[in-house]
Amino acid sequence: MLKILRIIFSLIAGILAIYSLITNNNETMPIICGFLGLAFIVMGLTEWKKDKKAITILLFATAGFGFYVVVSSFFY
């Protein structure tokens, strides 16, 4: 289940990134960061199940930064 979610979130982010590159539309960047943050959370959960704490902390921190970018883009 988590593997499917990770693939879906990554594909959505990739498709939006390609769309953004083709159309020169930078307004989709916060959405891309949001989907990448969701993908990193799912990856962190899978690594947490494997008891790999160091990579789990790194993945959750990266997801947190992605969500910070999303939130800050709404207020800026």
Score class of each variant (00 low, 15 high):
A13L: 07
A17Y: 08
G34Y: 07
A54D: 08
A13M: 06
E27R: 02
F75D: 09
M29V: 14
T46Y: 04
K49A: 13
K53G: 00
T28V: 15
F65P: 01
V69F: 11
F74K: 08
T23E: 12
N25K: 09
A54H: 03
A61K: 01
I55F: 05
L5Q: 03
L58D: 08
S10V: 04
L16P: 03
I41H: 02
L11I: 15
G64K: 05
K50H: 09
Y76E: 12
T62A: 14
F67A: 12
L21W: 02
F35K: 06
Y68T: 15
L2Y: 10
V69C: 05
A63R: 00
A39S: 14
S73M: 10
L58C: 07
F35T: 08
S73Y: 11
Y68K: 05
I7V: 11
I22R: 02
R6S: 10
G34T: 10
L59D: 05
K49E: 15
T46L: 13
N26T: 12
K52D: 10
V71E: 10
I7E: 07
W48Q: 08
L2T: 02
M1I: 09
I31Y: 12
G14N: 07
L45D: 04
V69G: 00
G44S: 13
S20T: 14
Y19V: 15
I18H: 03
L11D: 03
A39R: 04
A54Q: 06
L16I: 13
F65E: 07
I32C: 04
M1V: 10
F9A: 12
I8W: 02
K53Y: 13
E27V: 03
K50C: 00
I32R: 00
A54S: 08
G14H: 04
I31C: 03
S73L: 09
I8P: 00
F35M: 13
K3D: 08
I7C: 02
A39V: 08
Y76S: 12
S20F: 05
I32N: 00
F67C: 11
S73I: 11
L5I: 01
I41W: 00
L11P: 01
T28H: 05
L11C: 09
C33T: 04
I15E: 04
L21D: 08
V71D: 09
K53T: 14
G64Y: 08
N26Y: 14
A13R: 00
